[in-house]
Amino acid sequence: MRLEIERGTKRFGETTVFEDFSATFEWGCVTTLVGPSGSGKSTLLSILAGYQPLDVGRISFVDENGSRSHPDPNLISWVPQGANALSRRTALDNVMLAPLAAGLGLSTARIRATEALEAVSMTHRMGERAGLLSGGELQRLAIARALASGRPVIFADEPTANLDIENTRRVAQAITRPLQGQMVIIATHDPYLVSLAQRVVKMRPSESLANG
């Protein structure tokens, strides 16, 4: 299974964010989306997630038989840049949001969240209020939330921005660790993160090309 964008164009008013852009993202693979600021990486992620429409072009999931389906926000978990968390609630409460939203019961959601926090080496902080976590820990918390959602596609938007080297390494390892059939797409400028990815897709302002 793969996610394809074919000759996609996105404009905001008079401004063209990207034009005639095509790329393929493979299942079970970590892909980084790279390009200078303003090249439309975050916008593309948002479109691939189904949050925004393309102006021109087509996006589709293609299965093993070649049949296509539209992007589905229900399949995607998003890791934002920075500290999107319920700051007054515990780390565990924050991660539990994803499995609860998936319809799991309270105790199952707690188990799933604990496992996800373990996957990002955060179990020792699970009882801490999110507002007291460092920037790196919050980023790992967001990754744990994405893992706990059980959704097959994870999008991450600049997950290591504004982090020091040590935290960048931890976050990068957490999000690029071997996944069980999940597709991970990361918009980033970070060379370390790019080095850990299996594929790289490059974007340029108004003129983008895919590079496998």
Binding site: N74, S77, W78, V79, P80, G82, A83, N84, A85, L86, S87, N94, L97, A98, A101, A102, A142, R145, S149, R151
Partner: peptide
Amino acid sequence: SSESAAYRLSGTTSRS
């Protein structure tokens, strides 16, 4: 709105 994002990006629909 950051807290709203935490919900929405965790798979919570706008309605929920």
